[in-house]
Design a protein around this nucleic acid. Structure first.
Lengths: 244, 244
DNA sequence: CGGTTGTTTGACCTAGTTCAAAGCAAGTGG
DNA sequence: CCACTTGCTTTGAACTAGGTCAAACAACCG
């Protein structure tokens, strides 16, 4: 709610991925962040836009999405609290994808010119931001692999592992119970699967005792089993202190 | 062959994507580049490595690849002359993917510490390098979409468009005839398809008069038709001067 | 209570896989 | 200059993972 709390989210995230110092934290806190709330399925940025803001996810789930000529949607990555999905807009003026809320979300906007001058004057922060975009790229690579070469069941397990792991690493969930109010249709768009098949794969994961769901709660009952089923290895997320 | 020529490749590429100046070019030329030749299917860097060099592709085709637990391979992106596939290694110490030659290739190695000090002292070059990694990320996004939501025929056409377009934009091909000595198995690994189906989709493209092949030569007979068939839009490649 | 959005089910279908064998081109050594 | 590998492409036939369609069900909400 207060300007401080949105900076906290940003700082906390950057600390999980890079080695920033006290002085840098002060600078980060001085970046003005304009907060706004959105419903699910709201386009924050569209393909072809030339935005002058980048945004940090403060709460909720955001996806980068693309649409094919036949009107099908692909979600190419998820973004959770602390992530700056369109940081690349700082150096790529024209957007090549959309960013949409997948759940109700709170977003914090930061002006490009502010971010640029912070980067110019604070090389360690610039490096942290660069690193953040590189981790995004690593996630895209993993998603190409997930969608291209894993079968539906494994693919589903993998994406759940990633979501749960990332939410936990920014302190958004305790244990292995996550609140992920995302529709099965959106999961399908992320996995390159039909809604019907997403539903069946979720049932299979429940049947095998790997997860339990109630409403939007997803409970990883057997984390080891789930990571195994999902062929999930955390290397590509490049956490500084891999939690577990 | 001479040290100058490998710098040329690098400089030329950076000029196609960013606005670097005369002074920067001099600096870039001063970066020592150690050249080496490889056969096809050679792993230049492996998952888990902590390399102290990044490399620029001087000739040939390189792919970033990942392997699933079931031993299937996914190529997550191609890299052509001028590209620096593992530039992200500068800020992500541990590799989350392999880089392998897909054709015979000439590679130029540059020390990380050299690159880091160049970045520290020349912010415009740092920005150009950052931008280069952001374009890589944009390509990964497109590939997620290609593999996740396009059918095999469209997918095949799309990847050919990307390859031909990128090769042309760095001056590697004239008109629409490209030399791409890549196997159909590798194409399958890039598209998430079986070799058999790759073969059939290529036949279909030939049958419809969009391409002709002889040996490793791919001739785009009908560029407009091919881009249409491949649902190909160049935005995601973020060229400074979109050629056509 | 009716409307809306999301999940679940069942039946049928097809795009793409798998397997196995047959061509084909290029290089090697005798 | 010819037999022999070796690696890649092409073909055919059978199969299956996952898609499509359509309807039922459940939950939420004003």
């Amino acid at each position: 709610m207060s300007p401080t709390s949105s900076s906290d989210v940003l700082v906390r995230k950057l600390q999980t991925i890079s080695d920033i110092r006290e002085a840098d934290i002060g600078v980060l806190r001085s970046i003005p962040i304009q907060e706004k709330d959105y419903l699910a399925n709201h386009d924050l940025v569209r393909e072809g836009d030339r935005p002058v803001y980048s945004f940090v996810v403060l709460d909720g789930l955001v996806g980068s999405t693309k649409h094919t000529g036949e009107g099908k949607r692909q979600i190419t990555s998820f973004f959770v609290a602390g992530d700056i999905p369109d940081l690349h807009g700082l150096h790529l003026s024209i957007m090549d994808c959309n960013f949409s809320t997948l759940t109700p979300a709170r977003i914090g906007f930061m002006r490009h010119d502010t971010l640029r001058s912070v980067c110019d004057q604070h090389p360690r922060i610039a490096a942290a931001f660069w690193r953040s975009t590189l981790i995004d790229a690593a996630i895209y690579r993993e998603w190409v692999t997930n969608v291209g070469r894993r079968e539906a069941y494994t693919r589903m397990a993998h994406i759940l592992c990633e979501l749960i792991f990332r939410l936990r690493s920014v302190g958004r969930i305790q244990d292995h119970v996550a609140d992920i109010p995302i529709t099965q249709a959106a999961l399908g768009d992320a996995l390159g699967l039909s809604t019907v098949h997403v539903n069946r794969m979720l049932q299979e994961l429940r049947r095998r005792g790997l997860i339990a769901t109630s409403g939007s709660q997803v409970h990883a009952l057997d984390w080891a089993g789930l990571t195994h089923a999902g062929d999930f290895d955390t290397t590509y997320l490049h956490q500084r202190n891999p939690a577990d």
